[in-house]
Design a protein around this nucleic acid. Sequence first.
DNA 1: GCCGATTTGTCCGTATGTATC
DNA 2: CGATACATACGGACAAATCGG
Lengths: 241, 241
Amino acid sequence: MPRAKYQTIYQDIKQKIETGEYEFQKLIPSENSLVGIYNCSRNTIRRAIFELAEGGYVQSMHGVGVRVIYQPVSPTAFSMGGIESFRESAIRNHKVPGTKVLNLTNITVDARIAARTGFPEGEEVCLLQRVRYLDGQPLILDMNMFLTSLVPGLTVEIAERSVYDYIENDLGMPIVTSKRRITVERVTELDEKWLDLGDYNCMAVISGKVYNADGVMFEFTQSRHRPDYFSFYDTAVRKKL
Amino acid sequence: MPRAKYQTIYQDIKQKIETGEYEFQKLIPSENSLVGIYNCSRNTIRRAIFELAEGGYVQSMHGVGVRVIYQPVSPTAFSMGGIESFRESAIRNHKVPGTKVLNLTNITVDARIAARTGFPEGEEVCLLQRVRYLDGQPLILDMNMFLTSLVPGLTVEIAERSVYDYIENDLGMPIVTSKRRITVERVTELDEKWLDLGDYNCMAVISGKVYNADGVMFEFTQSRHRPDYFSFYDTAVRKKL
DNA sequence: GCCGATTTGTCCGTATGTATC
DNA sequence: CGATACATACGGACAAATCGG
């Protein structure tokens, strides 16, 4: 439940768009009208509209109005966007998630790992490897490394549920920024061992570094997706320089 | 040259971060100090900081300050992010771009194309197919479809340079929003015919719909990238609900 | 543990500029 | 030209989080 006023307005307008009350390609009420509707200042309205534009819901047009550009996406495949846990994504895509933990051990970062992940050499990290199932099919091979000092007490039970739940709710450490990179890599023996790959010789790979509110990178993650079940959405707004 | 004050401040701070004047993991001056430095209101400073946070340069911490979290990326492969033309990306990645136009014809949208692109059936579109070279190697197969009514007068010469330059500068139509989807697909005969693929049997595919300032989709685009030269960056900030 | 200083987060009201129609 | 609508900017107020004494 958002307590900031602009969040409430954002949610309300977003819902009106998703239910079709504000129609695709039509204009929503002008900022000044919305000021009256929500009984707030224009700055607050603008903040809400700005976030809607970022999410690909609307587009502001100088001197004209704010147009709805949202259309529901066809849920053909599993899709990822924003910072979401596997469980959150699965539920949003109406799939039944499953998880098998392959490995959960503490290791010390050596030079090779440090170069690949960005963790400082000598740090203690917890290595977690999991196979992810959607509707019973093994589709994703997940590798996570957590800084043991910031994420202590990981167990197989937590890893089978949602590590993010544990970090945010139980440890009370807010997750803030995440830098991700999407690449396509050759399949490895591990991929072939655990996933049903058919004759694909490539995997879609999302590598990410996750930072907490202190700006400390506490997680490195790599998700290897079977190509035909991988789909990543992104809405970009061109900056005027 | 940005003319808005917050843009100038954004550029200035960004440059100070990139050159290391504002160090990685350290705090930048407080908002109130920056108000003095740039002789402006706090809202203007906050706007600039907000954009820096979106770009993955800084992270605001309530009650503490604003921390620099930017580290230069290793330019190992061709990378994409935001809305950029091929030329812009190539130059940013210090590669020499090249283009060969395979096809430039006007077609009418039939049912099959309409379903795949989202263009209305019966519309006139201009179909453009190009091979993209980086430092002489054929790596990307591009397919674009432009609404003829909004993007008239395309020629092979323009297609060999930058179509976006033509649209924005010559036609004066600002490009605003772009919705993209990244998938991994099997190689096609066309891929094999025009690109050096080795034994890869998959391609990284970026499909996108581009909207102008009127909220009209005027372009559908599909870029097929050779896997080992594909890399997509994204910085996400987790929203607090 | 409390208090006060500092810093960011939210919100308001107003003024002015610019683009569209 | 005038009316409307979004864009930028200012200045002020208070809340919430953090940190040091």
